[in-house]
Amino acid sequence: MEGLVVIDDPTSILRCCNKVYLHENFRRNRISAPKTVIVSTTCRRTLDDLEEQVGYPLVLKIPNGSFSRGVVRVENRSQLKETLRRMLMGSALILAQEYFYTAYDWRIGILNNRPLYASRYYMSEGHWQIYQHDALGTKAGSFTTMASYEVPRSVLNVALKAAKGIGDGLYGIDVKQDGNRTTRAERALMVEYGFALPSECEAIADLEKKVFLHDRLSPRQIRYHLKNDKARFCLAREGGIPVGYGLLLTNRRWARGRIYSLAVVQKWRGRGVGRGLLSLLEHYARQAELHGLSLEVRRDNGDAQALYAICGFALVGEKPGYYSDGESALLMRKDFI
């Protein structure tokens, strides 16, 4: 088509569409990225090297795949050999990468080497990718958007650094974040987010003791909410150990979900864990087609109030003497519509 105004250029487009180029660019510029091996055969030595350097499960990618297509996870050697053989029939090179499940990816939009927008893209429910393609069609996870100033500086920095190796047009850079570092697309999180398991009841109770002096959830209450189908009990884990949790309660009669409790151990405060948990709870609330979220926060807890305000919650009221020690609660709310 002629007469259209564009802000990209052919060279940049080709670079963005070539995962082999991107891998070499990130390696050359020391941008943290997933452990990656580029392969071209299915010989024994190749398979041995992948098992030693990457391990299972691992992800195989064609260089020009997009929207979760041309990306396959394999669990063992037989799957690796057969999938690699099949993919090499359509591509001379395949990228083999380490696999880690994460609840969402950052997408940082960059124009002329400056951040333009930011989004969190969530994995499709029950799946490890944002898009799930099968015989019934395609399902996609939801997303949330925000201004670039709401994004942790470390996330913006790594996105800007990654974009410099491509050009000065409009790009979307995928980034994953943990407590200590940010990494360009699909790197393992030191902190992983997901549902709490019944077997983690004792660990959550220990976390309660570390975080709260008053109004703790008892082990009995924790077990109840872990089994409650109207509750979403989400954990942040470091090395499999809970370092934070968020508890969302819903009811068919409620227009909004209620964040009943949010806790992060001292070591991980101020490092994005609380924000990650809130984002995950909001994701589930939107999936349930709720109109928003509400919560109570201690009047003397300024840090928590600041976190909620940054994440879009507004003060709407106060409950005097709400907590067991007589402290008042501030009522905060975030509306989606």
Rank of each mutant, 00 (worst) to 15 (best):
L160T: 01
R252E: 14
N64V: 05
E318K: 14
L88R: 05
T183F: 12
A159F: 03
P63M: 10
W268I: 00
S119C: 04
L248T: 02
P34N: 06
P219K: 02
P198L: 00
V316R: 15
N112I: 04
L226Q: 06
R86C: 05
S142G: 14
N251V: 00
R69S: 10
R44C: 07
C311A: 10
L189Q: 13
T250Q: 11
G240P: 09
R184I: 12
K139D: 05
R30G: 03
R45G: 00
E2P: 07
L249F: 02
Y149Q: 11
K210D: 09
V243N: 12
L217C: 10
L235Q: 02
D48R: 11
Q79D: 11
Q177R: 12
G167W: 01
Q177W: 07
S40W: 09
S142N: 11
E24L: 12
A288S: 08
L293T: 04
Y322N: 04
C43G: 12
V155P: 03
H133D: 05
W128T: 13
I38P: 09
Y260I: 06
C234W: 03
L295M: 10
G312L: 09
A306T: 13
A288T: 01
C17V: 01
K210Y: 00
N301F: 09
I310H: 15
H225I: 02
A103S: 06
V316E: 13
N64T: 13
R216Y: 02
E125F: 05
